[in-house]
């Protein structure tokens, strides 16, 4: 409920933001790291959508990717391992006025945080989730992650990884209430931006997996795809992505895909090579938990005090009543 006069007055004083307005501290990712491309796309998105920094929050878990909130000049919450999504859900419930973004990695989301990932998709709360998938634990110097390719030699798999990698797209598309599932690759920054922009405008949990290079530990893993544009499959549709002419000259392997077609989306997601890039699934009519679940609308000081006391009472040791 906002008055027209208030909107007019706010419009009179709209601040102009440039990219620097959203740049926090200097990134400490390695040179060549794909996280930089994601960070830049996110900053561009914030600038172009004129998001007010004080109305925007980035939530992360643990890992290289999860350092991203430090590099944004917005609110941020660098949380605990695997728990970015529940923290973000709490923020969404308590502060529905904020733009909520989540940055997580393949270890953070698909291993320790896998349960939260499944339920966050099912709850479909309005937020943009970016899964930075570099297929390795980079921050802790090269241990195998759930999405590492089979046979990968790492500190924890010196004889090569035994298992087939987990496919975050097929998992997400298999969860009830999935409403927006997309994939980007860090070497096509134009499409990271376009996909994140679509994800941001979707009302619900937008899940974007971004395949990224780790130049430090897996420098050549994705080279075959980088050097052969035909091994990237761009998914286009009038309701999905529309690719610019200049990009089409390089990436000629394109296919029209209706993002409402979940069966086709699952089929595309299952085929790993060529790598599909675009919006696999988008259904704006999936209900959002925060709208279904009525929470206490007014957080009065009394309500907060009652809640705190109830929590603290759990740890109170009451003197035993004397017998008799």
């Amino acid at each position: 409920m906002s008055t027209r006069a208030h909107e007019c007055l706010m419009r009179m004083y709209l601040e102009e933001h440039n990219l620097e307005s959203y740049q926090g501290s200097i990134p400490r990712w390695c040179s060549g790291c794909g996280d930089n491309a994601i960070l830049t796309a996110v900053q561009r998105l914030c600038r172009d959508e004129k998001l007010r920094p004080e109305k925007t929050v980035f939530v992360s878990g643990i890992g290289c990717s999860s350092r991203l909130p430090h590099y944004m000049k917005t609110y941020g919450f660098h949380g605990i391992h695997g728990r970015a999504l529940p923290v973000a859900e709490g923020i969404r419930l308590a502060r529905p006025d904020l733009n909520v973004f989540v940055t997580t990695g393949d270890g953070d989301c698909c291993s320790i945080g896998a349960a939260h990932w499944i339920h966050a998709i099912r709850y479909n709360m309005n937020m943009t989730v970016m899964l930075h998938d570099n297929q390795i634990y980079g921050l802790t110097k090269m241990q195998v992650s759930p999405t590492s390719p089979k046979g990968l030699r790492s500190k924890t798999t010196p004889r090569g990884a035994f298992l087939e990698p987990l496919n975050p797209l097929t998992v997400t598309l298999g969860i009830q209430n999935a409403s927006f599932v997309a994939q980007a690759v860090d070497w096509i920054p134009e499409l990271i931006y376009e996909i994140l922009s679509r994800a941001f405008h979707h009302k619900g949990c937008s899940f974007v997996r971004i395949i990224q290079r780790c130049p430090e530990f897996l420098p050549e893993l994705l080279d075959p795809w980088l050097h052969d544009p035909n091994r990237t499959l761009l998914l286009t549709h009038e309701k999905g992505l529309q690719v610019s002419a200049s990009l089409s000259r390089v990436y000629k392997n394109q296919r029209e895909h209706d993002p409402m077609d979940i069966d086709r989306a699952r089929e595309i997601a299952s085929a790993g090579d060529p790598i599909p890039v675009g919006i696999l699934y988008h259904n704006p009519s999936v209900p959002r938990y925060e709208e279904l679940h009525a929470i206490e609308p007014l957080r009065t000081p009394e309500l907060i005090q009652r809640g705190l006391e109830a929590e603290l009472d759990k740890f109170t040791i009451w003197p035993q009543e004397e017998a008799g």
Binding site: L19, G34, A37, L39, R44, W187, P189
Partner: peptide
Amino acid sequence: TPRCTTCNECTNLNNRMFAYDANKQ
């Protein structure tokens, strides 16, 4: 430029010869 991933390799090499535009590319 539109395909630049902002990985800082070139700007680290020579930040007067290589620079970023308004989109940080």
